[in-house]
Protein backbone atom coordinates (compact mmCIF):
# COMPACT_ATOMS: atom_id res chain seq x y z
CA UNK A 1 0.00 0.00 0.00
CA UNK A 2 1.38 3.45 -0.92
CA UNK A 3 2.54 5.52 2.03
CA UNK A 4 0.62 8.83 2.31
CA UNK A 5 2.92 11.89 2.29
CA UNK A 6 1.93 12.85 5.87
CA UNK A 7 3.38 9.55 7.11
CA UNK A 8 6.71 9.90 5.33
CA UNK A 9 8.68 10.15 8.63
CA UNK A 10 7.95 6.45 9.27
CA UNK A 11 8.94 5.19 5.83
CA UNK A 12 12.43 4.02 6.82
CA UNK A 13 11.12 2.18 9.87
CA UNK A 14 8.57 0.42 7.67
CA UNK A 15 11.27 -0.48 5.18
CA UNK A 16 13.39 -1.94 8.01
CA UNK A 17 10.32 -3.96 9.08
CA UNK A 18 9.97 -5.33 5.58
CA UNK A 19 13.66 -6.20 5.31
CA UNK A 20 13.49 -8.18 8.57
CA UNK A 21 10.23 -10.00 7.83
CA UNK A 22 12.00 -13.40 7.50
CA UNK A 23 15.41 -12.60 9.00
CA UNK A 24 14.10 -11.41 12.37
CA UNK A 25 10.30 -11.13 12.73
CA UNK A 26 10.67 -9.61 16.23
CA UNK A 27 12.54 -6.64 14.74
CA UNK A 28 9.91 -6.44 12.02
CA UNK A 29 7.04 -6.45 14.56
CA UNK A 30 8.46 -3.69 16.77
CA UNK A 31 9.42 -1.51 13.79
CA UNK A 32 5.77 -1.70 12.71
CA UNK A 33 4.57 -1.02 16.25
CA UNK A 34 6.75 2.10 16.34
CA UNK A 35 5.46 3.13 12.91
CA UNK A 36 1.88 2.60 14.10
CA UNK A 37 2.31 4.70 17.24
CA UNK A 38 4.15 7.46 15.42
CA UNK A 39 1.79 7.36 12.45
CA UNK A 40 -1.22 7.85 14.73
CA UNK A 41 0.41 10.98 16.15
CA UNK A 42 1.27 12.29 12.69
CA UNK A 43 -2.17 11.88 11.10
CA UNK A 44 -4.92 9.41 11.81
CA UNK A 45 -7.75 11.63 10.61
CA UNK A 46 -7.46 11.96 6.85
CA UNK A 47 -9.02 9.01 4.98
CA UNK A 48 -5.78 7.99 3.22
CA UNK A 49 -3.83 7.88 6.49
CA UNK A 50 -6.64 6.10 8.36
CA UNK A 51 -6.79 3.47 5.65
CA UNK A 52 -3.02 3.01 5.78
CA UNK A 53 -2.96 2.76 9.59
CA UNK A 54 -5.90 0.32 9.74
CA UNK A 55 -4.00 -1.87 7.29
CA UNK A 56 -0.85 -1.61 9.42
CA UNK A 57 -2.86 -2.52 12.54
CA UNK A 58 -4.27 -5.60 10.74
CA UNK A 59 -0.70 -6.61 9.93
CA UNK A 60 0.42 -6.15 13.56
CA UNK A 61 -2.49 -8.18 14.92
CA UNK A 62 -1.84 -11.01 12.54
CA UNK A 63 1.92 -10.97 13.32
CA UNK A 64 1.17 -11.10 17.04
CA UNK A 65 -1.06 -14.14 16.47
CA UNK A 66 1.58 -15.88 14.34
CA UNK A 67 4.34 -15.18 16.85
CA UNK A 68 2.28 -15.99 19.95
CA UNK A 69 4.88 -18.51 21.17
CA UNK A 70 7.70 -15.96 21.05
CA UNK A 71 8.47 -14.33 24.41
CA UNK A 72 9.94 -11.25 22.72
CA UNK A 73 6.45 -10.58 21.36
CA UNK A 74 4.31 -11.64 24.31
CA UNK A 75 6.48 -9.81 26.89
CA UNK A 76 7.55 -6.33 25.88
CA UNK A 77 10.37 -6.30 28.42
CA UNK A 78 11.96 -9.23 26.54
CA UNK A 79 11.20 -7.48 23.24
CA UNK A 80 12.94 -4.36 24.54
CA UNK A 81 16.12 -6.35 25.26
CA UNK A 82 15.95 -8.02 21.85
CA UNK A 83 15.69 -4.73 19.94
CA UNK A 84 18.36 -3.05 22.07
CA UNK A 85 20.80 -5.95 21.55
CA UNK A 86 20.14 -6.00 17.84
CA UNK A 87 20.61 -2.22 17.52
CA UNK A 88 23.88 -2.39 19.47
CA UNK A 89 25.12 -5.33 17.39
CA UNK A 90 24.59 -3.29 14.20
CA UNK A 91 26.21 -0.26 15.80
CA UNK A 92 29.28 -2.20 16.94
CA UNK A 93 29.72 -3.84 13.54
CA UNK A 94 29.62 -0.45 11.78
CA UNK A 95 31.85 1.15 14.42
CA UNK A 96 34.46 -1.61 14.05
CA UNK A 97 34.45 -1.18 10.27
CA UNK A 98 34.78 2.57 10.73
CA UNK A 99 37.73 2.26 13.12
CA UNK A 100 39.40 -0.23 10.76
CA UNK A 101 39.03 2.29 7.93
CA UNK A 102 36.72 0.03 5.95
CA UNK A 103 34.07 2.28 4.48
CA UNK A 104 31.30 0.68 2.44
CA UNK A 105 27.54 0.67 1.84
CA UNK A 106 26.88 -2.13 4.29
CA UNK A 107 28.47 -0.31 7.23
CA UNK A 108 26.61 2.89 6.34
CA UNK A 109 23.38 0.93 6.34
CA UNK A 110 24.26 -0.68 9.68
CA UNK A 111 24.89 2.71 11.27
CA UNK A 112 21.61 4.03 9.89
CA UNK A 113 19.57 0.93 10.81
CA UNK A 114 20.93 1.00 14.36
CA UNK A 115 19.74 4.61 14.67
CA UNK A 116 16.28 3.61 13.38
CA UNK A 117 16.10 0.79 15.92
CA UNK A 118 16.97 3.21 18.68
CA UNK A 119 13.93 5.21 17.57
CA UNK A 120 11.95 1.98 17.88
CA UNK A 121 13.16 1.56 21.49
CA UNK A 122 11.02 4.57 22.40
CA UNK A 123 7.90 2.34 22.24
CA UNK A 124 9.11 0.83 25.52
CA UNK A 125 9.62 4.14 27.30
CA UNK A 126 12.01 7.04 27.43
CA UNK A 127 15.41 6.37 25.83
CA UNK A 128 18.48 6.19 28.04
CA UNK A 129 21.03 8.98 27.58
CA UNK A 130 23.46 6.37 26.22
CA UNK A 131 20.99 5.31 23.53
CA UNK A 132 20.24 8.93 22.63
CA UNK A 133 23.99 9.49 22.13
CA UNK A 134 24.41 6.26 20.12
CA UNK A 135 21.49 7.24 17.89
CA UNK A 136 22.87 10.71 17.26
CA UNK A 137 26.37 9.40 16.53
CA UNK A 138 25.14 6.56 14.26
CA UNK A 139 22.91 8.87 12.22
CA UNK A 140 25.66 11.46 11.86
CA UNK A 141 28.25 8.81 10.87
CA UNK A 142 25.90 7.27 8.28
CA UNK A 143 25.28 10.67 6.67
CA UNK A 144 28.92 11.74 6.83
CA UNK A 145 30.38 8.53 5.35
CA UNK A 146 27.64 8.38 2.71
CA UNK A 147 28.45 11.93 1.60
CA UNK A 148 32.21 11.24 1.58
CA UNK A 149 31.80 8.16 -0.61
CA UNK A 150 29.40 10.01 -2.91
CA UNK A 151 31.90 12.85 -3.36
CA UNK A 152 34.90 10.55 -3.73
CA UNK A 153 36.44 11.77 -0.45
CA UNK A 154 38.08 9.68 2.27
CA UNK A 155 36.24 9.78 5.60
CA UNK A 156 38.46 10.95 8.46
Amino acid sequence: MALPAQLRPIQHHLRTAQEHENRDPVVSYYCRLYAMQTGMKLDSKTPECRKFLVNLMDQLESMKKELSDNESITQEVVGNAHIENYALKLFLYADNEDRAGRFHKNMIKSFYSSSLLMDVLSVFGELSEENVQHRKYARWKATYIHNCLKNGESPQ
Partner: peptide
Amino acid sequence: TSSLASSVASAEQDDLSQRLSRLRGQV
Protein backbone atom coordinates in the same frame (compact mmCIF):
# COMPACT_ATOMS: atom_id res chain seq x y z
CA THR B 1 -22.74 15.81 6.63
CA SER B 2 -19.36 17.20 7.69
CA SER B 3 -20.19 16.65 11.37
CA LEU B 4 -21.21 13.06 10.56
CA ALA B 5 -17.89 12.56 8.73
CA SER B 6 -16.02 14.00 11.68
CA SER B 7 -17.87 11.70 14.13
CA VAL B 8 -17.03 8.70 11.97
CA ALA B 9 -13.36 9.79 11.83
CA SER B 10 -13.14 10.17 15.57
CA ALA B 11 -14.88 6.81 16.18
CA GLU B 12 -12.37 5.16 13.84
CA GLN B 13 -9.51 6.87 15.65
CA ASP B 14 -10.82 5.57 19.01
CA ASP B 15 -11.08 2.14 17.47
CA LEU B 16 -7.43 2.27 16.38
CA SER B 17 -6.32 3.44 19.83
CA GLN B 18 -8.27 0.61 21.47
CA ARG B 19 -6.84 -1.96 19.08
CA LEU B 20 -3.34 -0.66 19.83
CA SER B 21 -3.93 -0.93 23.59
CA ARG B 22 -5.32 -4.46 23.21
CA LEU B 23 -2.37 -5.44 21.04
CA ARG B 24 -0.01 -4.34 23.78
CA GLY B 25 -2.02 -5.99 26.52
CA GLN B 26 -2.90 -2.67 28.10
CA VAL B 27 -6.66 -3.33 28.27
